[in-house]
């Protein structure tokens, strides 16, 4: 199914959890913040929430800044 990750079209297996999908991208889920359809997820939700067709994911993390 098609989802949108950081503004890019991506494919994901239907029903995959947020934690599993983030891991398939090569990220340690502990090191990113996730917004799913505009809503910030708590870490405990990564294993519970599943992605649906058209889901919009934002993956965010700390970077250097002043």
């Amino acid at each position: 199914m098609k989802i949108i990750v950081n503004g890019e079209d991506r494919q994901a297996p239907p029903g995959i959890t947020v934690a599993a999908y983030v891991a398939t991208l090569g990220f340690d889920p502990e090191t990113v913040v996730v917004e799913l359809d505009g809503q910030i997820l708590g870490r405990f939700e990564y294993d519970e929430r599943r992605l649906a067709e058209g889901a919009e994911l934002e993956l965010i993390r700390f970077v250097g800044g002043g």
């Binding site: 990750v5 950081n6 503004g7 890019e8 991208l25 090569g26 990220f27 340690d28 990113v32 913040v33 934002e58 993956l59 965010i60 993390r61 700390f62 970077v63 250097g64 800044g65 002043g66």
Partner: peptide, 12 residues
């Protein structure tokens, strides 16, 4: 201080 940005999907 640190900032928050979208991850670079090409560089986990």
């Amino acid at each position: 201080t640190v900032a928050l940005r979208r991850v670079d999907l090409a560089d986990p």
